[in-house]
Amino acid sequence: MHLTVWNVPETCSEQEVHDFFKRELGHYAKGVKVYDAGTSNAHADLELDSEVPYVGEAVARELQSRRLAGVALRVSATPFDSEEQEERRPA
């Protein structure tokens, strides 16, 4: 499960963003990739250590209330990928 976090402050380095999400998500943070750090388009992709899609939604809602360097984060969970949807379909 992946989350995309937008509105990452320009003032934050890639390491600061990485450390923030590792601290906030604890054991749920399987991976954190930061893109365009130091720019107005900075954002992060968070890989969650969970196969349950509802965990992603719950984490996204929780992170939505967090601030990084005083800036409110915007978070969205990625929709189910086609492989996960195939597994859920009744045979």
Rank of each mutant, 00 (worst) to 15 (best):
Q85C: 10
D81G: 04
V17R: 07
R61C: 06
E87N: 13
V55C: 07
S82I: 07
Q85H: 10
T4P: 03
T78H: 04
V5Q: 02
T39V: 11
A60K: 01
H2T: 03
E10I: 10
Y28I: 00
D36C: 12
S65C: 11
Q64K: 06
D36E: 13
N41L: 15
R89T: 06
L63Q: 07
S13W: 10
E47Y: 05
F21A: 09
Q85N: 07
E24S: 12
G70E: 05
P9V: 04
G31S: 08
K30G: 15
A77Y: 03
T78Q: 04
E83K: 14
A37H: 06
V32D: 09
Y28H: 12
V8Q: 03
Q64M: 03
V52G: 00
L25H: 03
R61V: 03
A37P: 13
D45M: 09
L48F: 00
K22I: 14
L73T: 02
R23F: 08
E51P: 03
A58N: 14
K30Q: 14
L63C: 05
F21G: 04
A42E: 06
L3G: 02
G31I: 01
M1Y: 02
W6A: 11
D19C: 03
E10R: 14
G70L: 11
D19H: 10
E62H: 10
M1L: 12
Q64D: 05
D45E: 08
D49M: 05
E57G: 12
V17D: 00
E57Y: 14
L3E: 03
L73Y: 06
E14L: 11
T39L: 13
F20P: 01
D49R: 12
S76R: 15
F20G: 01
E84M: 14
S40C: 07
H18P: 00
R88M: 05
G26C: 08
R74K: 13
A69R: 05
A29F: 09
R23V: 00
D49W: 07
H2W: 02
N41I: 08
L48H: 01
D19F: 04
M1G: 12
L63I: 02
V59A: 03
R88E: 08
R61Q: 15
E10P: 09
R67T: 06
A72D: 15
E87M: 14
A91Y: 10
E16T: 01
E62W: 13
D36P: 03
V75M: 08
K30R: 09
E57C: 10
G31C: 11
V5W: 00
R66T: 11
E84V: 08
G56W: 00
E10S: 15
V59R: 02
H18N: 10
Q15R: 00
A29Q: 06
D49L: 05
Q15V: 01
P90D: 15
E86N: 11
L25G: 01
E47P: 00
P53Q: 01
A69E: 13
R66H: 13
F20A: 05
V75Y: 02
K30V: 05
R88F: 07
D45A: 08
G38L: 05
P9T: 04
A42C: 15
V5E: 02
E16A: 08
S65V: 11
Q85T: 07
L68I: 01
A91S: 11
R67E: 04
R61H: 06
P9D: 08
E10F: 14
Y28A: 02
E47H: 01
D49Q: 09
Y35I: 02
H2V: 04
P9C: 07
T39K: 14
H27S: 15
T39M: 13
G56E: 05
G31Y: 08
